[in-house]
Design a binder for these strands. Structure first.
Lengths: 239, 239
DNA sequence: TTTCCGAACTTACATATGTGAATGCAGAGA
DNA sequence: TCTCTGCATTCACATATGTAAGTTCGGAAA
């Protein structure tokens, strides 16, 4: 099984055969997880990181009153908590949004990898750096864009990331997120997300019939979102 | 001059003498920079990272209509663009908010450091990971907290980070940020930031006479902010 | 002392988005 | 077929926050 992580890393830089072996040896056997399961608990101390092989997960924080803010949507090929290797205590939880396949990567093996493979370490480091860049784009969208621009940006981001790991077909992709999940990601109410999706449809920008999303007018959509893909670092450049 | 970076790293893990030397050798001589100067340009390709030794800087993105979103406030001891080592192209700009002292760290030397010092590399990696954690807290505050809670959270964050590098005196610290800068950081209007600061004062939570901020009631302030400091990783834990 | 200027602060009004509560709808199971 | 259940959708109304345009204040320069 060729996994999406390799595909993503290979887009960024050359990965040698010995690095591929090292990476494979870090991972435990894949396992299936149901939808709506917490695979990482908020505030937990953990001894392994988790690679998402198939499906969608969300990183989230819970407020005192029970409301939730999602801080990133993860797709196949993403380490959902690689940072726990060095953070030790989780600063957020991770929940599956649909049935997923994951693989554990024990911290002990990851740490050994950082001792023996400097270049591969930089590639993993880069992956956490791209997470931070994604967070920054969300901050810009949340702080300064209109609701519509914000939603449009999220659609563009997910399309681009899924496309990079071969999970789009033409302009169509599978997005098994409820409007409640979207509202927790955008920091809006479900009612308003519903209004915004209706607007994207009315404007002829997307065809959206859960869980299928088709982008009908990428130029206009990405313009409304002011989306530029460079922050995702999907181009090749030695690291 | 013992710098704030060492102080921060030492809080997180033991830093050996040879690592201290390696770190010092990465840096060019300190230089002074005026207030309101762009020290890193949006979208630039850069060959060095910048360590902030004294002062305050902001990471920001500019929208098409000229509005601005600040995504992080950096304080003494922060690398303001360490991620450019692997990202290559900057996804945001960095501007000084007051007169600053900085030091350049050429990427060539930083890359050599990652080849020779695995543990120190992990410490630098951790620093970028904490940046991401800060971004996530901002997302939570921006998406789900009230304006007041959001501002309170920023005050708590900055107090804690400044305290970690010895830049607070009791409950007082220097914060040379205009209300315009604050509004760009919070994603609010200047008018509303003014209202919120007035409310913090009225509630007896802070004494705020620019650039001096004194926290009068930390328990209540941090409760309004739902602030917990663990995400800043200021506790010692081997990496 | 006077002028100037950036920042803080205020006011009046506009609106994007939230809240609470229905209603509709389709798939899963009994 | 019927019921359940989770989700999408709609409605009426409330409000946090934005916008535009001031006024005030205090320090720096002349």
């Amino acid at each position: 099984m060729t996994n999406a992580l390799i595909e993503k890393l290979t887009r960024r830089d050359i990965v040698s055969a010995s690095e591929l072996t090292a990476l494979a040896e870090v991972l435990d056997a894949p396992r299936k997880v149901d939808a709506h399961v917490d695979i990482v608990l908020e505030h937990a101390y953990t001894e392994h990181s988790i690679l998402l092989l198939e499906g969608f997960t969300a990183r989230y924080s819970t407020l005192a009153d029970g409301r939730r803010q999602i801080t990133e949507i993860n797709v196949a090929g993403d380490f959902v908590d690689l940072h726990s290797l060095l953070m030790k205590q989780m600063d957020h939880g991770v929940v599956t949004l649909c049935p997923c396949v994951i693989a554990h990567a024990p911290h002990s093996r990851l740490r050994r990898l950082t001792e023996e493979h400097a270049h591969l370490t930089r590639l993993l480091w880069l992956d956490t750096i791209v997470d931070a860049a994604i967070h920054r784009q969300w901050l810009v969208a949340m702080g300064r864009r209109s609701g519509l621009g914000h939603l449009a940006h999220l659609v563009c981001e997910l399309f681009t990331r899924l496309s990079a790991v071969g999970l789009t077909e033409g302009q169509t992709f599978n997005l098994p997120l409820t409007q409640t999940v979207l509202s927790d990601a955008l920091g809006l109410s479900t009612v308003h997300v519903n209004r915004l999706i209706a607007e994207l449809r009315r404007e002829g920008l997307v065809r959206w019939s859960n869980p299928q999303v088709e982008i009908l007018d990428w130029p206009r959509l990405s313009q409304i979102a002011e989306f530029g893909p460079t922050y995702l670092r999907l181009h090749s450049q030695p690291v």
